[in-house]
Design a protein around this nucleic acid. Sequence first.
DNA 1: CCTACCGATCGGTAGG
DNA 2: CCTACCGATCGGTAGG
Lengths: 197, 197
Amino acid sequence: MSKIKGSGKGTRKETIIKAAAALFREKGYGAASMRDLAEKVGVEAASLYNHIRSKAEILQEICFGIANEFIVYMDEVENSQLTELEKVEKILRKHIQMMITRHERVYVTDHEWKHLPEPYYSNFHNQRRTYRKRFTAIIEQGIKKGEIKRIDAPTAVIILLQSVNGIESWHRSNHRISAAALEENMVSILIEGIKKN
Amino acid sequence: MSKIKGSGKGTRKETIIKAAAALFREKGYGAASMRDLAEKVGVEAASLYNHIRSKAEILQEICFGIANEFIVYMDEVENSQLTELEKVEKILRKHIQMMITRHERVYVTDHEWKHLPEPYYSNFHNQRRTYRKRFTAIIEQGIKKGEIKRIDAPTAVIILLQSVNGIESWHRSNHRISAAALEENMVSILIEGIKKN
DNA sequence: CCTACCGATCGGTAGG
DNA sequence: CCTACCGATCGGTAGG
């Protein structure tokens, strides 16, 4: 018989990180205090430190956890036999889906990673640059093959990745359209925007 | 003979706000301290309060100053005789140009307005919603006229406005392409993405 | 997991 | 514009 903690939804540490993701998204990392977090979790602030080492550690777990998921997916796509345009669409859809289903952590990762202490900051920064370069390379290859129109590839990457962040405002505004419809609309506009012809 | 303060570039208060915009962009509003700001300006922290009433007042001036500029431009475009698609392009170009030439204030406005104290927060929130609704209405009209393809207009607005924020990373990465080329690439991808046929 | 508390730092004020 | 300082709050620790 295994020892079940909390309400059966992972470890106590996971519960804390989940609450922290919501809190950091709402207030920003700097403005969110450990006392706020403790209240959300239902303990005294000091008790949090039995599960986590520091406030910064929570941010690290969020940022590197999300980043890793994107990197693993990028590996998959790169090794597939899809056309370059299909690869771009796949990656775009992954970002949209992550933003829809895990928006708190994704949002925090994207907006608060600057607050990571060294050496995590530099580490994250490098991972991010590498990821974008890999994405850029796919688009450049697609241009070379004539699948994608002659645009500046890094600019295209910026547009694709930034657009996805707008889903935040879809989330806040009571789901006027379904997640599936949102995804199709975004893909339609963006893939059409870079496709040749 | 008028009294010239600072290095002839506006009032002392403007100097402070300009330095604050750079600081808030770099560290975030919450993590930027008045002592940091004072050091940048070259005075003691207490001296700042001879020119500004509070830290929050600086954020207000930045956010409402930028928002107002966009609203004034929206008025102009709405009253013009352009096609709806041309109106969308005009507004998109305005956002791109503002982000290129005034990126510190625009970035801070977009990322830190949540930290405005009430009633400024609600006020800003309303202005923002109204602006987006006006932009959405232009796109909906363009769809009705057959200039723009049948997409969800609010989703299109999200994509157009969010994409522009990516210019931040262009700014950081040593201007690989010119501002003009960046603008043309963004317009090409995004307007092509929403245009009919 | 709690009580009690630490040194540091925060935004801001008094008074000159 | 400065010195001196305020009360509040911060992240985190000691000790149980």
